[in-house]
Design a binder for these strands. Structure first.
Lengths: 232, 232
DNA sequence: ATTACAGTGTGGTTAGACCACAGTGGTAAG
DNA sequence: CTTACCACTGTGGTCTAACCACACTGTAAT
């Protein structure tokens, strides 16, 4: 077993045993190195991995943002991983879109009316109406979809959904350039968003799921990314 | 931007541009360091991250297994990430089980009859009938579920499903100890597997999906892990 | 032809140094 | 007394230079 894996094991044990909780700080790199009788290099490699996993955040200096602190951001971590695999051509973009449809329709169907995430989603829609440029619109769009997914109350599904979105974010950005009429598309997307939210708020989960599926597939189809149709 | 992130960017670009393909070798660490004008330390931190992402595999010595070569194993990488987040108590096991149900029923519903993965699944079932100990049984069980998921032809869904399985593998192993009668459970699980495979092979996707959902939920419920019921 | 072995290049690991950064606390100027 | 300055401290970030274990390769001795 390699040295940095030993460090990883040790930190994972600290987490499992509850000796290290969310928001907690790891010992300094030098301290850990001495405690585990390994070089600082090996400690750093382990920390790098945890950072890539979204389990910790490393900050220089002193004060609240300093040191290596335990966080919980699986979404961005999974997103980076998927993005790299897309780069290797092992994960087709079509599969990612298809999975997004799967996860998001499931979430829309089970979204709980009355949770704060839905209120946030409604606010985001208002902001999107006023969005000046495409990038702002897309950023708000991403947050809307994440909020909707979170309303279902399954952290794994929200994290995975967010990561899928992130993995093809650049891709989506480029694709908007190919659209014939952004204003028309934007208007349509905003209308679809409101219809989805309305269906969710009327407790019509099945309708919401269908609308979400059509919404996502419609965008990528229009932008030129192939995607298989759903089973029904 | 930190130095190792620069190295990551460079490697990701090589992948995106196709200069580096699956099975290809990265330049030696010393060569990369000189080429990018950074220290070998920074190169190594980047490689560590890619390794954790399942994008490369590093091997010492010389020959076919030596050097840093591009692979595509998103499943184990995502699995490790999820496992760590489970350790932080940020991802409830129940959510993972629920997501597994979601992904696997979807895959069972869309599994394509005639693909080699289904033949492999059938063989695995035969081996499970002859499995001597629990660990062997569980290992074969895992492979069966992965094969079934792969039969749907969506690489992202299979990878995520496998990673979810892996994230709670230890957990599942411990839980089998709590079962009142392993022989009875094993017999039931094997019967359920055959029913699932039969439904898939009869092109009865809906039935297969229901059976899979009941199969997974049943196991974890019996083992004492809570899971919310499906919407229908 | 076979065997033994030095050579070569790979990642793995270490020690020790220096840097930028951001708070802390003492100190000198007002 | 207040204020402004600044050295101090501890954090992660980076670099250099060395050595190790490993696995193959070519060569030389048998």
């Amino acid at each position: 077993m390699r040295t940095h894996e030993l460090v990883l094991q040790w930190i994972e044990k600290q987490l499992s045993d509850g000796d290290l909780a969310l928001g907690g700080r790891l010992p300094g790199e030098r301290a850990m190195a001495e405690q585990l009788q390994v070089s600082r290099t090996s400690v750093r490699e382990a920390v790098r991995i945890l950072e890539a996993m979204g389990v910790v955040r490393a900050g220089v200096g002193s004060g609240k943002d300093a040191g290596t602190v335990v966080i919980a951001e699986p979404g961005s971590a999974l997103g980076s991983t998927l993005r790299l695999h897309v780069a290797t051509r092992h994960l087709p973009v079509a599969d990612i879109v298809e999975t997004r449809v799967l996860l998001e329709s499931w979430a829309a169907e089970r979204a709980k009316v009355g949770v704060p995430e839905l209120e946030e989603a409604a606010e985001l829609l208002d902001q999107m109406d006023a969005a000046a440029d495409i990038d702002t619109f897309l950023a708000l769009d991403a947050r809307f979809h994440v909020a909707l997914a979170q309303a279902a109350g399954n952290t794994v599904v929200s994290a995975m959904m967010a990561s899928l979105r992130g993995a093809i974010e650049n891709y989506a950005g480029e694709l908007t350039g190919n659209l014939p009429d952004w204003n028309a598309t934007s208007t349509r997307l905003r209308a679809e968003h409101r219809a989805i939210l309305a269906a969710v708020n009327s407790n019509d989960g099945a309708e919401a799921a269908e609308l979400v599926a059509a919404h996502i597939q419609g965008f990528y189809t229009e932008a030129g990314v192939g995607s298989n149709p759903p089973p029904n």
